[in-house]
Amino acid sequence: MMRRKQDAPEGCVFILSSITYAHKASKLLSLAGIPSSLIKGSDLKKFDGCGYGINVRGDCVRARNIIESGGITIRSETREGRQA
């Protein structure tokens, strides 16, 4: 059965300053019960070469708060295919 749009879990991508911080952010979210997966950023020019981030399925506002409370700077956030 097709899921109605408003019931679908929220999704977003956070780009972080390094792969180390991507893993750290993913771990913090995992501890809070928010699933995420590590991805490589696609906008190479924007990230001066390489950028890693995490793809989050869940409450993006809560996820952002958790990541930033962990002292991690979010370089960019994209929600549902748009720049936040």
């Binding site: 390094s18 180390t20 990230f47 001066d48 070469g49 390489c50």
Partner: peptide
């Protein structure tokens, strides 16, 4: 270092 490839110096961020 896997990041900031166009910079001439190593990134400031640890541990990279």
């Amino acid at each position: 270092a896997g990041l900031l490839s166009f910079e001439k110096t190593m990134p400031d961020s640890l541990p990279e």
